[in-house]
Amino acid sequence: MQHEIIIAGFGGQGVLSMGKILTYAGLMENKEVTWFPSYGPEQRGGTANVTVILSDERISSPVLNEYDAAIILNQPSLEKFEPSVKPGGILIYDGYGITHPPTRRDIRVYEIEAMNTATNENMSKTFNMIVLGGLLKVLNPVKLDSVMAGLKKTLPERHHHLLPVNEKAILRGMEIIKEK
């Protein structure tokens, strides 16, 4: 089993760290993993993306041109990556700031109102965890327990009190994602 995932949005939305948490969760399940980010100045306010691969076997290329799942957090990323989702694959997007929603019919499209939810429910710091919750609900590449174990491992001990807040955000994301 192999999951090839792209996460794309604006720099500062937590795109790279969401990918990192997903990758750590894969590590917790003894999967083979790769995490390959866009890097450099484009991180700062521009568009950022990260390719995450979770697999039961040795991973060949960390760079891909088609994906099982795309998580899209802004319009430029939607235009760039909607065509790259494999037929039958999954596209998750946050409608906030999206002027031209996805149009493909050969993929499963989900909308998650993570930005609005984060703002309204005072969860702006865990925006990306809400999105991650959505992914866990519809694709389930790793178990929630593994995500939490990965978070615990990567967060410095002094931040461990934030674990419940993050878990809450993931659970909220699972609730609010809906198929289009």
Binding site: E32, V33, T34, W35, F36, P37, P62, V63
Partner: peptide, 10 residues
């Protein structure tokens, strides 16, 4: 190269 330097793996 930039791919091997920037990517994360086990």
């Amino acid at each position: 190269d930039g791919v091997i330097g920037q990517m994360m793996e086990k």
